Amino acid sequence: MLRRLTLTAIVSLAVLSAAAPGAAAASGPLPLLPLPQGEDDARTRLTVTVSEAGDPSAEGVFELECAPAGGDHPAAEPACDRLAELADEGTNPFAPVPRGAMCTQQSGGPATARITGTWRGRHVDAVFSRADGCEISRWNNLRPVLPGIR
């Protein structure tokens, strides 16, 4: 009986493991590919809203435009450079933490941020927090678009 249960569990796991990549590919988001420099950069206009950061100068609503860097974001040029770097890597910095991700249960404080607008011609509406290790990493990956938090 135990042998049959073990065999059933192993076979089920193998079937699910083989099916999961195909199911994720069919239903998941398309990969973000790097775009050529130039006209697509001009379509980057973001509104960054930061609250409870613990530093009044880091909190508020900031406009960020790229190509050329502008707006009232306190670090517009480095922020645009970081966004371009992430695009060149093929990374979507606005993607949420994947479901089922194993995250450390640590708190990075009450800071929250929301970024809306257009990044390289793509609609953006992303929420950031510092609620656990994955969210802290996601926030830190987007510095200096988001402020550094201690």
Results as ranks from 00 to 15, higher is better:
Asp41His: 10
Phe128His: 05
Asp41Leu: 13
Ala14Glu: 06
Pro93Leu: 07
Ser27Val: 08
Arg99Met: 10
Glu52Ser: 15
Ser129Ala: 11
Asn92Val: 06
Pro144Leu: 01
Phe128Ala: 04
Glu39His: 09
Ala53Phe: 02
Val11Cys: 11
Ala14Phe: 07
Gln37Arg: 15
Leu5Arg: 14
Pro93Met: 09
Glu65Gly: 13
Ala24Trp: 14
Thr91Lys: 13
Thr112Phe: 00
Asp125Tyr: 04
Ile115Ser: 07
Asn141Thr: 14
Arg120Asn: 09
Ala19Pro: 08
Asp81Thr: 12
Gly133Pro: 12
Gly133His: 08
Gln105Gly: 06
Ala9Phe: 05
Thr47Lys: 10
Asp88Ile: 00
Thr91Leu: 14
Ala113Val: 01
Thr118Asn: 11
Val11Trp: 02
Glu59Gly: 06
Cys66Glu: 06
Arg114Cys: 05
Gly100Lys: 05
Ala69Asp: 02
Ser129Cys: 07
Ser57Val: 08
Ala87Val: 01
Leu30Ala: 15
Cys103Ile: 10
Gly108Asp: 09
Ala84Tyr: 00
Leu46Met: 04
Leu7Val: 09
Glu85Phe: 03
Ser137Asp: 15
Glu39Ile: 15
Glu39Gly: 10
Ile115Glu: 04
Pro147Cys: 02
Asn140Cys: 01
Gly38Glu: 06
Gly90Arg: 11
Ala131Thr: 14
Ala76Glu: 02
Gly38Ser: 12
Arg120Met: 10
Met1Asp: 13
Asp125Trp: 03
Gln105Phe: 11
Arg138Tyr: 03
Glu77Asp: 13
Gln106Ser: 08
Ala131Lys: 15
Gly60Thr: 03
Glu89Val: 12
Phe94His: 05
Val11Gln: 05
Glu59Met: 01
Thr8Arg: 14
Asp132Ala: 05
Val97Gly: 06
Pro74Phe: 09
Pro74His: 08
Asn140Lys: 13
Asp72Pro: 11
Ala53Pro: 01
Cys80Ile: 09
Pro93His: 02
Ile10Gly: 12
Ala69Cys: 03
Ala84Trp: 00
Ala79Glu: 01
Arg130Gln: 10
Glu89Trp: 12
Leu64Glu: 06
Ala76Asn: 07
Arg82Ile: 00
Gly109Ala: 09
Cys103Asp: 05
Ala95Gly: 04
Asn140His: 04
Ala23Cys: 06
Thr44Lys: 10
Ile115Lys: 03
Pro144Gln: 02
Ala53Gly: 12
His123Tyr: 14
Leu32Phe: 11
Val124Cys: 08
Ala20Arg: 13
Ile10His: 11
Ser57Lys: 13
Gln37Lys: 14
Met102Lys: 14
Pro56Gln: 00
Thr118Val: 06
Pro68Trp: 08
Met102His: 11
Arg4Thr: 12
Phe62Val: 09
